[in-house]
Design a protein around this nucleic acid. Sequence first.
DNA 1: GCCGTAACGGTTGAT
DNA 2: GGATCAACCGTTACG
Length: 227
Amino acid sequence: MMRPAPGQSYPRSSGFPLEVSTPLGQGRVNQLGGVFINGRPLPNHIRHKIVEMAHHGIRPCVISRQLRVSHGCVSKILCRYQETGSIRPGATGSKPRQMAIPDVEKKIEEYKKENPGMFSWEIRDKLLKDGMCDRNTIPSVSSISRILRSRFGKKEDEEDDCERKEYEEGEKKTKHSIDGILANKEKWLRMSGAVSMGLGTEVEETARLPVTRFMKPESSFVVCLVY
DNA sequence: GCCGTAACGGTTGAT
DNA sequence: GGATCAACCGTTACG
């Protein structure tokens, strides 16, 4: 069978339903009948089990079939474990991009003070022209505008702080009212779904909801009743 | 049949 | 707040 062509999805010929609704997102079913969430790492207990079984000398193909995880994934996890000694997935998201060095920031400030109407792209050009940076080290236009905001937008930040304080004051009052509870509806829905899967402490890592650490699966019933 | 890996669609987090 | 980008995820299929 061919790989899915660009713009196409994976074929639905496996006989399994392609999509299942899981509380943590739109789950899918792989060819082995295992449930996975596309783009998200497998739960820690599965990863742990893969490594543990491999330690016991069980072959990757057997692990794959037993845990219903694709052999490609088993292979990846075991490779990573051999290389790094860790079963944890790598950090998703881009690495922090290179920040402008302080000298460059100072120069940007200078340019802006000399000419307040100067655009970020003009500043960028001038940095290049003056030899402050080369093509590789020059900060992006958006980085420059961010620097400008942080340096020249302080007054706005102070106003934001005032607003935040007012908001926090108000939140304390409304937290235990019906309005307050309803405002957290989405959070509660996610929590109820996560615990109903019986994922226990996995939830903290996959759904980033530390509060569920001490919740029991049956609590989902209570949460569902509320809504 | 097993295994390594490229290609793919998707998610996440920084900018 | 939304868009963009880069790094990662797991699955699938090829060799």
